[in-house]
C-alpha cells in the first residue's frame, strides 16, 4: 500500500537557493527509508516539504490520497497530526514538563481552545505516561525537559511523535547532536517502535553505516536530485562516492 507519493518536488528559497530539483519517490506502509546525502543536498527541505513546514515551489506530495501542497489550514492540521516528526535539536519545550511535552503530540486532535488551556484528559495523560515508560523515561515525567540529557530528550521527542499515533514518521538527523552510545539507543528505539507499530519512517542521516544497518531502503540525494533509490545492499562504494562527491566514473577518467 502506498502511503506517501512525492512527485516532481521542487523548492527554490526566496534568496535564490534551489534546494530541490524535482524529486520523485513513493513510500509504502511500514518501510524504513533512510535518506542520505552531503550537507546542503536538500534532505531537510525534502522532509519539511512532506508536512509543509516548508512550502514546496512545485510538485505534489500526496499523503493518504490528500494533496499536502494544496491543503487548506484545516486539512493541513489533519494531515500533520498523522505525521510524527523528530528533530536534530530535539525541539522540546524546555521549560515544560516531560509529560506535557509528550501531551503536545495530542494537540492536533484537540480543538485549539482545549489545547490553549491545557485541557488534556486523563486517558491522554495515561497514554503519554505509557509512551514515556516505553522509551524508558517512566520515572522522569514531572522533570523539566531541560533537566534531561540529550539522548533522553530525543526519547521524549520520539514519545511526542508517537503520541500522534502517526502513520508516517519523519526523522530529521535524529542522532546528529548525540554521542555514539545515545545514537545507538535512539536508532534502536526509533527502528523497533516503527516496525512494531507498522509506522513508515523517512529518516535523514549522514552516517552511511547507520543507514545501511537500519534501512529497508535507501534514497541518496545530491544537490537537490535523487541519485540513488534502492536496497541497502545495492549501495556500493561507487554510488556512495557519487552521492557524496558526485564523482561519476567518466569524470574521474577525464582528470
Amino acid at each position: 500500500m502506498t502511503l506517501l507519493q512525492v512527485k516532481g518536488l521542487e523548492k527554490k528559497y526566496p534568496d535564490g537557493t534551489v534546494a530541490l530539483k524535482g524529486i520523485d519517490f513513493e513510500v509504502n506502509e511500514g518501510e524504513f527509508i533512510v535518506i542520505i546525502g552531503p550537507s546542503g543536498a536538500g534532505k531537510s527541505t525534502l522532509l519539511r516539504s512532506v508536512n509543509r513546514l516548508v512550502d514546496a515551489t512545485n510538485g505534489a506530495v500526496i499523503f493518504k490520497d490528500r494533496d499536502v501542497v494544496k491543503a487548506g489550514t484545516r486539512v493541513l492540521r489533519k494531515i500533520r497530526r498523522e505525521i510524527g516528526m523528530i528533530f536534530q535539536g530535539f525541539n522540546l519545550i524546555e521549560r515544560a514538563s516531560v509529560l506535557n511535552n509528550v501531551l503536545h503530540g495530542r494537540l492536533g486532535y484537540m480543538s485549539d481552545f482545549k489545547g490553549m488551556f491545557y485541557l488534556f484528559n486523563q486517558s491522554q495523560k495515561k497514554t503519554a505516561y505509557e509512551l514515556l515508560h516505553r522509551v524508558g523515561l517512566g520515572e522522569q515525567i514531572y522533570k523539566r525537559a531541560d533537566e534531561l540529557s540529550g539522548g533522553q530528550q530525543q526519547r521524549v521527542g520520539i514519545a511526542r511523535a508517537l503520541a500522534q499515533k502517526p502513520a508516517l514518521m519523519l526523522a530529521d538527523e535524529p542522532i546528529a547532536s548525540l554521542d555514539p552510545v545515545s545514537s545507538n539507543v535512539i536508532m534502536d528505539y526509533l527502528y523497533n517502535i516503527c516496525r512494531e507499530e507498522g509506522i513508515a519512517c523517512l529518516c535523514n542521516l549522514h552516517q552511511v553505516d547507520v543507514a545501511k544497518k537500519y534501512a529497508t531502503r535507501i534514497i541518496g540525494i545530491h544537490a537537490g536530485e535523487k541519485v540513488f533509490d534502492g536496497k541497502p545492499e545495492e549501495l556500493t562504494e561507487d554510488i556512495i562516492n557519487q552521492i557524496y562527491h558526485n564523482k561519476k566514473k567518466e569524470l574521474v577518467a577525464n582528470e
Binding site: 513546514l53 492540521r77 500533520r80 525541539n91 503536545h104 485549539d112 489545547g115 490553549m116 500522534q164 519523519l170
Partner: peptide, 11 residues
C-alpha cells in the same frame, strides 16, 4: 515542532 503535531495557533 508543535506545528508538525498539527496544533493550532492558540495552542
Amino acid at each position: 515542532a508543535l506545528k508538525a503535531t498539527g496544533a493550532g495557533w492558540f495552542s
